[in-house]
Nucleic acid binder design. Structure first.
Lengths: 143, 143
DNA sequence: GAGAGCCACTTTCCATCGGGAAGTAGGCAC
DNA sequence: GTGCCTACTTCCCGATGGAAAGTGGCTCTC
């Protein structure tokens, strides 16, 4: 076990967990990360919010995230950030300035998921037109 | 506009839609596709459920999906499939056998999202161990 | 010809969840 | 003191998801 290389361990993990099974822990994890706010937080901290295309990942303050993720309630933002911190996807740092400032930053684990989160956002933005067209067809056909 | 090539159109679409904005249609689309059942349905129809690793995409029956996505309620399965059909990600085909059979199959649009859906599932399964370890640390530190 | 069965839903009921708004804590500035 | 700042926390209520039972069309059995 201790001499197992990373690739082997990963292969075993893939065999061990299966999100199709209701009782598998990876099902709950899938449920947590399949969330609008999770995707947007990962994109924000990953640097995707820069006006001139994706920038570098960077730490952001609570209020900065709240402003960027338009429409998020403070309750959901706090709750989502806490669960991501608990799962090790980001770190929460309190700086005792006045008033106190709290910054959030992606961990390596969070960065690895950020790549996929970015793809989801890009997909939604890139294919919005096609989806809208399909919706029109569908609604016209079923009216 | 009609002479615009695909790459240009896509670039414009990226500039046109921004999921960070609450009122942007792509925000709603992101919300719909950021869903446990959507990810699992895309994975199932994409052929990821085969025992010997990912196979080819294939059409599946309603009952087959219900069996594979352990724990899904009939209501949510029907509801999710309908919204994916409306958005043009899959097709629904009714065959008037006895009893009637209904099959679902990914469209090209659905296939393009399947690649990302597969990544999310794999990420959850591959990093489950790390997340579990972080959770233990967090819970121990905050107890 | 009265059940019984099958598939794909649809409906009903209830518990949980998410959003909106208001309240809290701790410290400095006036 | 009173106000103000950030980062929450709490409360209330409407929306959402799950469990389970019902529906409809057709066929097969007794």
């Amino acid at each position: 076990m201790t001499t197992m290389r990373a690739a082997q361990r990963q292969a075993q993990a893939k065999a061990e967990y299966n999100a199709f099974l209701a009782a598998c822990p990876s099902r709950q994890l899938l449920d947590r990360i399949s969330d609008k706010w999770v995707v947007l937080i990962l994109c924000a901290l990953g640097g995707d919010a820069a006006p001139q295309g994706p920038g570098a990942p960077r730490a952001m303050r609570y209020s900065e995230l709240a402003r960027l993720l338009a429409g998020v309630s403070q309750k959901m933002l706090t709750q989502t950030l806490r669960s991501l911190e608990r799962d090790g996807l980001l770190t929460r740092t309190v700086t005792p300035t006045v008033p106190v400032t709290v910054t959030y930053e992606l961990t390596d684990l969070g960065l690895s998921l950020h790549r996929t989160a970015r793809e989801i956002r890009y997909w939604a933005q890139a294919h919005m037109g096609e989806v809208l067209a399909h919706r029109d067809d569908y609604d016209a056909a079923t009216s």
